[in-house]
Amino acid sequence: MSTPPVLRIVEREALVFARLWRGIAFSTFVAPALFLGAIGVGLGGLVKAHTGAVDGLTYLDFVAPGLLVASAMQLAASESLWPVLGGVKWMRQFHGVVATPISPGQLYGGFVLWTALRSMLGAAAFLLVAALLGAVPSAWGVLAIPAAGLCSAAFCALLAAYSIKLDSDLSFPMIMRLGVLPLFLFSGTFFPVSQLPSGLRPLALFSPLWHGVELARDATTGTFDVAPVLAHIAVLVACIAVGASFGVRRFSRRLSP
């Protein structure tokens, strides 16, 4: 019985992962704990003294799902920019992959899947730390893990489809600074979007991160309505679909022209 090609890609990436474990362990397990400690507990203490509850939650409860999904997004973004261009242009290992029976489209699919899995691993670790700090009031909270995976897949699907076409990495710092960073800072991660100026508020609808954060927050707090949950999921799935329709085509065009 042979392994499906998509899983073979996952296997390859897992091998690479094993070599880099120290940095990855830090960014997956330690960094989130530090963020949660500083922002959730430290800064949260100040919020508690002044405002009390944020959207009916303690600041720690509010910010934990935000940070959880935001780190999934950041991982997806950074993995889908330099490493993708590197795979096709600098290290060129993608060319090696498609020289095997694996097709470019399967490579793309495996790459997105792997990134989502990694994000979910990170999300699980994050959730554990958050739970220990008392930031996960509901057992529904485990569903924050797939929420993070979905959000990560959305970013990875879109950005990998973008990066594969490029010839230089000059646009990447711009994407990180003017795309990913604003999303990170203003998607209801650190404060509710209701606080944004009313003109800007609708923009949150266009932020995949906001949908991911809302989903995760619904899960960790265990208070949600079905309709908005379905809507958030639909938006993220749509992002993946759009990304995949471009990604499969572009990977093929670039890797086996």
Binding site: L43, V47, T51, L170, R177, L185, F186, F190, F191
Partner: peptide, 28 residues
């Protein structure tokens, strides 16, 4: 443009943490 984009980063933080979160924290 990469040079210029460097100006944005701290300003975005100021708006999000300083202004946004600031509203939740109040005075110190």
């Amino acid at each position: 443009y990469i040079f210029l984009s460097g100006f944005a980063e701290p300003l975005l933080f100021l708006l999000s943490i300083g202004v946004g979160v600031g509203k939740l924290v109040g005075d110190l």
